[in-house]
């Protein structure tokens, strides 16, 4: 299981800058991010170094921030890998809420929010997927 930091982003010029500034000023690295946008607001989801600390810093800076559990899986850069992953997850009757990718110069990973993280991690491990934890996640870089 990996900790994800989520920040509520108002649709206003400069909000993203303010959030990332808080992180950079405190030397917190962002490994991956995705922005879910609606007409009214956005949700910025990030995998960062020290998510709990980042949450506190952002809250102090006046943002709505929270930490949630997500599943991170290392993926081979090969045709059919994603299809196999989704097939495995759906076979266990778990639904995917959202996901986003992470790529480094060496490898790729996918971050998935599912309805049942424990089941997902179990079946993925049984099917030889490389499920990442916080530490191994950071080591990908």
């Amino acid at each position: 299981m990996v900790k994800q930091l989520t920040v509520f982003i108002e649709n206003r010029v400069g909000t993203l800058e303010e959030v990332t500034k808080v992180l950079s000023e405190n030397n917190i690295n962002i490994f991956s991010l995705s922005l879910a946008d609606t007409s009214e607001y956005g949700l910025l989801r990030m995998i960062v170094a020290s998510p709990e600390e980042a949450k506190k810093l952002l809250r102090d800076a006046g943002f709505s921030a929270k930490v949630t559990d997500v599943v991170a899986v290392r993926l081979e850069n090969k045709v059919g890998t994603l299809a196999k992953l989704f097939d495995t997850i759906s076979a266990s009757n778990v639904s995917i809420e959202y996901m986003y990718a992470m790529a480094t110069s060496k490898v790729g990973a996918i971050i998935i929010k599912v309805s049942d993280a424990d089941t997902t991690i179990d079946v993925l491990k049984k099917n030889d997927f490389m499920v990442l934890d916080q530490e191994s996640m950071y080591e990908l870089n």
């Binding site: 994800q4 879910a36 949700l43 989801r45 809250r59 709505s64 929270k66 809420e97």
Partner: peptide, 15 residues
Amino acid sequence: ELDSDTFSDEIKEME
């Protein structure tokens, strides 16, 4: 105004 503790990382829940 949103409460820091009750907002969700999922759009579905926010809606």
